[in-house]
């Protein structure tokens, strides 16, 4: 009988731990990147599945300026009108929500100024400094080859960012076993405290 119970608990653990990798649950995530004025992004769960329905609110500061729909691939597109930090927020209405910020520094300088009170990141400041340091090259224009290379480079950087974002959500067996270890550790501490309390009670009596 004891063996049956141990077998049963082992089955339950194994069913959970060795469930196919894509099935680890779930946190709603949003990713977006700027390509010129166009901001493209997608929504997904931490197990990698795309979220195919929902509305993404576009916010600058506390102001909601637009709302875009997710398409059948779980993707959305928005064209920036100003050089501001754009916060994209997805709320599925059932308590699942996610947000992602595309910083003003990622948007082209050709866009009108924007709200300077919006909080800028250190990166944004550095990029802004670089942009002011080399105004001549943007003013005089660049060759088509260079523009194509920059576009290709931008796409590669976007892909890398997507991969880093996905990797952050990647779970492996060690994480799960680590969690179980913590629980067993806490159980041991509870045992120790109860034992100590009962020993103290007996010695006082």
């Amino acid at each position: 009988m004891q063996r049956n119970i141990i077998l049963f608990l082992a089955c339950l653990f194994c069913a959970g731990i060795f469930f196919p990798g894509r099935a680890w649950a779930h946190k709603v995530k949003l990713f977006a990147a700027a390509d010129g004025k166009k901001i493209e992004g997608f929504a997904y769960t931490s197990d990698g599945a795309r979220i195919k329905r929902g509305k993404v609110a576009v916010m600058i500061g506390d102001n909601k300026i637009a709302e875009v729909d997710l398409d059948k691939k779980g993707e959305f597109t928005y064209e920036a009108k100003t050089k501001d930090d754009h916060l994209f927020r997805l709320d599925l209405g059932d308590g699942h929500a996610a947000s992602f910020t595309v910083y003003a520094s990622e948007l082209p300088d050709s866009l009108p100024g924007g709200d300077k009170t919006v909080q800028a990141t250190p990166d944004a400041n550095e990029n802004a400094a670089e942009a002011t340091a080399a105004p001549a090259s943007t003013a005089t224009g660049i060759s088509q080859d260079l523009a194509a290379e920059i576009k290709q480079l931008r796409q590669q950087v976007t892909m890398l960012r997507e991969e880093i974002d996905a990797y952050r959500e990647h779970r492996n067996l060690q994480d799960i076993i680590g969690g179980i270890g913590y629980i067993l550790g806490i159980t041991g501490i509870a045992f120790m405290l109860m034992k100590r309390n009962s020993t103290n009670g007996n010695s006082k009596a």
Binding site: L12, G16, I17, A23, A25, T45, D47, G179, I180
Partner: peptide, 8 residues
């Protein structure tokens, strides 16, 4: 463990 298993 069980609440980590997602069903798409």
């Amino acid at each position: 463990v069980c609440t980590l298993i997602a069903i798409p």
